[in-house]
Amino acid sequence: MSNKIVVLFGGNSLEREISLKSGKSILNTLIKSGVNAIGIDPINFPLLYLKKYGFKKAFIALHGRGGEDGIIQGILEYLNIPYTGSGVLSSAITMNKFLTKIIWKIYGLPIIYPHLLLNKKDFIKKNYLIIEQKILKIKLPIIIKPNCNGSSLGILKINHIDDLFNALEKSFMYDNNILIEKYIKGTEYSIGILNNKILPPIKIGYENIFYDYQSKYYSNNTKYFCPSGLSKNKEKELENIILKAWKVLNCKIWGRIDVILDENKNFQLLEINTIPGMTSKSLYPIAAKKAGLSFYDLIMKILFSTK
């Protein structure tokens, strides 16, 4: 393969550490396969020079802001360099959890409701008691999460109203907007999508209160079940929800959607990830392997489906 490929990884988001691991896994696989691939960290390289250096395609392995939010995609569109994953608009929308949920709700898809978006300026300037009353309408316990962040960074569960103020302060360290929603007890599933087909769903078993950063990347006690143990009917229901949720946002090539099966046995969409992790602990390659795709096969399928 003579085309010169750039693997973009690292970046300056809070998910830099995971992106470096993902990017190196992808880059090493491409190089071992004889692909003319070079890894570039946007922190160290002016991306407008990509064309000048002869790159013909880009494999985006940047997680979080500056990678999944449409910015890199916009630069590559401007340079007329094909790239992996979703386009500018879909990337920008899906990075915004609140906006994604609004669109899903309009299309009749199941989301956790009610929810509330709180801005940092309002939190600082407005009467805190008014904010507290709005949040109390959701009814405790609640989950608060940075609106445009991934890897479960800054997500906290609040059981008592006295803990709310400090929790909001902590979460605002990660984003200027916080999504607040009812805490749902249930079983979480992660579903990969590859070229408009779902990969085998993965059931997630974790020890902590929810599937947080520690559970995802460092705990040895987090368990992944694939096959997921869902009945054929439930798996078909999940497939229909996932593919509709994917298509209404006009996402492309590859990604992952997380859901929870609540105590009433109803699926609720949690969030979408348009550039899933590709580390040794990442779920997307696990699901692909169950579908019969080696890591190499997976990388090649994604690369040859460049937008």
Rank of each mutant, 00 (worst) to 15 (best):
D162K: 08
G154S: 10
N177H: 06
S152V: 07
G150Q: 06
N177M: 02
L168T: 08
K170F: 14
D163Q: 10
N159F: 06
N177W: 05
K157I: 05
I161R: 00
I161H: 00
S171R: 11
L168G: 07
N176C: 09
D163S: 09
S151Y: 09
L168W: 02
F165M: 15
D175A: 05
S171N: 11
N159A: 03
F165C: 12
F165S: 14
H160I: 11
N166E: 14
M173W: 15
Y174H: 12
I155Q: 11
Y174M: 09
F172Q: 09
D175Y: 10
N149P: 03
K170Y: 12
L153F: 07
S151I: 07
L153G: 01
Y174I: 06
L168V: 09
N166D: 14
N149D: 14
N176E: 08
S171D: 07
I161S: 00
N176P: 08
N147A: 08
E169V: 13
N149K: 14
D163N: 11
L156R: 08
G150D: 07
E169Q: 13
N159G: 12
G154D: 11
N147R: 04
S151P: 02
H160R: 12
C148F: 03
S151V: 01
F172S: 07
M173H: 10
S152C: 12
S151N: 08
S151F: 05
L164G: 01
